[in-house]
């Protein structure tokens, strides 16, 4: 299963980005293959509106099934994620990616 994180950097020790639509990076961990990839999302800075749906679409293209983030996606983004079959977990804004993954594994994050 592919798990996506919104983050401010590109590795396990990076701080989470609490924002969803305008997150700087998307990190994807495949817990079956144990692969870890990072995707630069900083282009989103150029979008005046509609950042949420755009980032959601990216998540879909990356094949993520789970999203771990901080504040939770806004209305439009939530609709896309739902259609894309991505489950969202929120409340990991203050953690680093490693801690966020642990919290998710221990069922400590709230499902959006």
């Amino acid at each position: 299963m592919k798990i996506a994180f919104t983050a401010k950097g590109t590795d396990w020790d990076s701080q989470m980005d609490p924002r969803f639509g305008r997150t700087e990076y998307i990190l994807v961990y495949d817990d079956e293959k144990e692969t870890f990839e990072s995707f630069d999302n900083r282009d989103i800075e150029n979008e005046a509106h509609g950042a949420g749906p755009k980032t959601s679409q990216k998540l879909f293209e990356l094949g993520a099934q789970v999203l771990i983030t901080g504040n939770g996606p806004g209305g439009n983004a939530a609709t896309v994620l739902q259609k894309a079959g991505v489950k969202s977990f929120i409340g990991a804004g203050g953690m680093n990616v490693k801690e966020a993954y642990k919290a998710y594994k221990n069922n400590e994050l709230k499902e959006f």
């Binding site: 924002r19 639509g21 305008r22 800075e45 150029n46 979008e47 005046a48 509106h49 950042a51």
Partner: peptide, 11 residues
């Protein structure tokens, strides 16, 4: 005003 400008100022 837009999400973009607010994000810029906050960033």
């Amino acid at each position: 005003n837009s999400g973009k400008l607010v994000a810029k100022v906050k960033n």
